[in-house]
Amino acid sequence: MLQYAARRIALLIPVLIGVSMVSFTIIHLIPGDIVAVLAGPMVASDSEIAQNIRQSLHLDQPLPVQYGLWLMGVLHGDFGNSLTMGLPVGPQIAQHLPVTLALTFMSLTFAVAIGLPSGVIAATTSGRWPDTVIRLFALLGLSTPAFFLGVAAVLLLSLYLPSFKTHATVELHADLFGGLKALLLPAFVLSLAAAATVTRYTRASMLEVLREPYMATARAKGAGRVRVLVRHGLRNALLPVVTAVGVTAAQLIAGAVVVEQVFGLPGVGQLMLNAIYHRDYTQVQATVLVVTTLVVLINIAVDLSYYLLDPRIQRHG
């Protein structure tokens, strides 16, 4: 196990270096003179503000040196200073991250809670009406942008259930329970596309397992229907579903950025979009880097969980 984990984690290093390079590059994609864009049109290029920007981004150095200096800072927890507020951007991210993570994990839970049973029901009723209905909903779930669902939910609730607060303030550190309660609706809205993905993976994987001879054997030896489905079927069908969860985790974090905007939630999405509107690209850069690193780590966790779930990998891997 340790050897396998060590090898997977070693493979991570080049990916993370690449991710940091791409994140670093974002700021250099700005067309024209970066300083003029960042400082705004009112600032002369030889003014103090412009000089400060040049200095804080090390723009007087060659590009590889700039990258090196930036990366050294990042590795020491210094993501640079906000170009608009002058404050370090690291603590800003730390402050906004809990809301996004809570939102993501809640929706992941909803997605599995909805998708897993739906997939199993669809597979066992394959070709009959429950299967058709579930597949139709999965198709709609995959085809509806989360922000539209959010807007529609807010609209319907404001028309028919005006007492429901769709835009509650979320302060997780002050009121954890109240904050999580306020995240329920956004998390549900965000989860539907992921639930559709989980449904599809579960259905496909369960259909394969249902054809296996050991399912017939289990039934023949007299095990009950539910026991056969869960103990013999679902257990073996679960592995591709874990893949689905890994795939959707990345989608959910990115989706959270948009859904936060619909419900006015103070997560990293709001932080990043505000930074974009204020042309605060060091903040944007750092947010992309931190969130992507998190996604990479989640995927590694999913990878390692295969190892724990499937003894066959342990033998060969």
Binding site: V19, V22, Q251, A254, M272, V291, T292, N299
Partner: peptide, 17 residues
Amino acid sequence: ILQAFPALLLAIALVAA
């Protein structure tokens, strides 16, 4: 490396820049 990024997140940052 490119696929490590959540696509929408990187799209937001790149289009903004």
